[in-house]
């Protein structure tokens, strides 16, 4: 039973784990690059393309987790001036916008990946297919939508709880 829940936690944090590995690789390879150039006088020729690849994956693969951990910033000044009922309507509209924009990015990024499947291009030095590197983007965008949904549900739950608490105190 306990083992299963641990596996589930791992699965639920798969994005963080992959991004974390990319971060580790980025740090260690960059440091190794310094040693190879400065000490060994044999610079890595392929470093830059791997750095870019790691960077892209860190940014997009953990983008969903950034929703989960509420890391995305928004300007709340104006909305908070409205009465609460209208605020709720606005929240729904915001959710709609997020889904539409991410959905659009999802579709277009699939088109982008298809371009590289068609032309079979790969990176200059290590010849890693770009379709593989960019293939993470549509997946990451889908993950963003899923994580956004989770954070919305959490938010609604906490609002409901607050309302219940408030009713309790009123009594």
């Amino acid at each position: 039973m306990k083992k299963k829940s641990k596996a589930l936690i791992l699965l639920g944090n798969m994005d963080i784990i992959i991004a974390g590995i990319a971060l580790g690789a980025l740090i260690i390879l960059t440091f190794m690059g310094v040693i190879m150039r400065y000490v060994m006088k044999m610079p890595f020729t392929w470093l830059e393309e791997v750095q870019l690849w790691c960077m892209l994956w860190i940014v997009y693969i953990s983008a969903g987790a950034a929703f989960r951990t509420n890391n995305h910033v928004a300007i709340e000044v104006l909305v908070e001036m409205f009465p609460e009922k209208i605020q709720k309507v606005i929240e729904i509209l915001i959710a709609l916008v997020v889904y539409v924009v991410l959905g659009y990015l999802f579709i277009q990024s699939i088109g982008f990946v298809q371009l590289f499947i068609r032309n079979g291009r790969s990176t200059n030095m290590l010849e890693v297919p770009y379709s593989l590197i960019y293939g993470a983007i549509p997946i990451a965008t889908a993950l963003m939508m899923i994580n956004y949904t989770i954070s919305l549900i959490d938010q609604m739950k906490s609002i409901n709880n607050k309302e219940i608490e408030q009713e309790d105190t009123n009594e």
């Binding site: 860190i58 940014v59 953990s62 983008a63 950034a66 995305h72």
Partner: peptide, 17 residues
């Protein structure tokens, strides 16, 4: 620390992107 680093980097870089 790893979790904070990747999610913070992501949030910043997505705005830049």
């Amino acid at each position: 620390a790893v979790k904070e680093t990747v999610t913070t980097t992501s949030a910043i870089m997505l705005i830049v992107a």
